[in-house]
């Protein structure tokens, strides 16, 4: 009755890091409340995947053709069936592309309160307390969720994945797929692999990465030159890609790529959680931003509060 349920997210046959991050945290929450950790596994032919979910006490699975690939409608229906069968107190869902389609949907359909953008969650005096990173990471909000059931939508990378990576053979319970799965309004067509870009930013030792602070497309060549001098490539945060100033293959962050270069030089990037997720493991992070309160400075090793248009030209000169 007061179990912790984790949505086990997988894409192309592999569990995502978020799954293990949530299992690790879920284990902790279940220990605090003295209850079980249950993983919700939705797919088609999931038996070979279960052993990776050893951190859970139990796996509740729903299998159906329509669940073979993620489908916002099918997965909402199936996850709803799992929630109704398990009746968990806490439901952990990653704040990822898939999780975004599920958490709010469950909240509306089952009338369960939801905390989103969550970077920390704990049990305090029997209450569930969450900390959400709001306003692009500039302000944290600590909240308490009331009710017998709560949904917590957790930012990717918020917790260590290792804590949830455990081989094992948890008990498996299979639920009958909901009848509505044969009458869906959303149908999955295909997965589209990213086009091979001119540069693979995950393989670069040096990335000079630009954000909104670059102001216009015309300023990009200046940064390209700097990247060349450093023997690296130019990458970018989401707004640059959404504006089509650089191809998708250059995007670092949540809907882009995860990078771990030797040097990540962040120019005019404020450091929203979605971006941090993609670059926080770089060996050396140097950030230049005109806003002294930019969250990027919390993650950088070295920071400069200043105008990138003043500093980049001098830096280029000094690098010869």
């Amino acid at each position: 009755m007061s179990d912790v349920l984790v949505f086990a997210e997988h894409l192309q046959g592999n569990f995502t890091d978020s799954t293990f991050e949530l299992l690790g945290k879920g284990r902790e929450l279940a220990a605090a409340t003295g209850d079980h950790l249950v993983a919700a596994l939705l797919g088609n032919g999931v038996d070979d995947m279960v052993h990776q979910l050893g951190a859970a006490d139990k796996v509740v699975a729903v299998e159906h053709d329509q669940l073979a690939e993620f489908n916002p409608e099918a997965h909402t229906l199936a996850l709803k069936a799992v929630v109704q069968a398990v009746n968990p107190a806490i439901i952990l869902i990653p704040y990822t592309s898939m999780g975004m389609d599920l958490a709010s949907a469950l909240s509306a359909d089952l009338d369960i309160p939801l905390a989103s953008y969550v970077a920390d969650v704990r049990v305090e005096d029997g209450k569930l307390v969450t900390v959400s990173q709001m306003y692009g990471g500039k302000v944290n909000v600590e909240s308490e969720i009331a009710g017998n059931q709560k949904i917590v939508s957790v930012l990717a990378g918020a917790f260590p994945a290792d804590a949830g990576k455990k081989e094992g053979s948890p008990a498996v319970e299979k639920l009958d797929p909901p009848a509505e799965l044969s009458n869906l309004r959303v149908s999955f067509k295909q997965l589209i692999e990213p086009e091979g870009g001119d540069v693979d930013i995950t393989q670069q030792d040096v990335l000079v990465s630009i954000g909104r602070g670059i102001q216009s497309e015309e300023n990009i060549p200046m940064v390209e030159e700097l990247a060349q001098k450093l023997g690296g490539a130019v990458s970018a945060s989401r707004p640059i890609i959404d504006n089509k100033w650089l191809p998708k293959s250059r995007q670092v962050g949540k809907s882009g790529l995860k990078v771990k270069p030797k040097l990540y030089l962040a120019l005019g990037i404020s450091g929203a959680p979605e971006h941090i997720e993609g670059m926080k493991d770089a060996e050396l992070i140097i950030a230049i931003n005109s806003d002294p309160n930019a969250p990027i400075f919390e993650y950088a090793h070295y920071g400069v509060v200043g105008d990138l248009f003043d500093i980049v030209p001098v830096l280029k000169e000094k690098l010869g």
Binding site: P113, N140, K150, A300, H301, V304, L315
Partner: peptide
């Protein structure tokens, strides 16, 4: 309804982060 109850807002802790480099653009570079 459907929302968490806000206890407080707070700014992320400062200081744990970057070592700041000061000076003119020349010095910083």
């Amino acid at each position: 309804g459907g929302t968490p109850e806000i206890r407080k807002l707070f700014k992320p802790e400062k200081g744990a982060g970057a070592q700041m480099l000061d000076g003119s653009p020349e010095e910083v570079a």
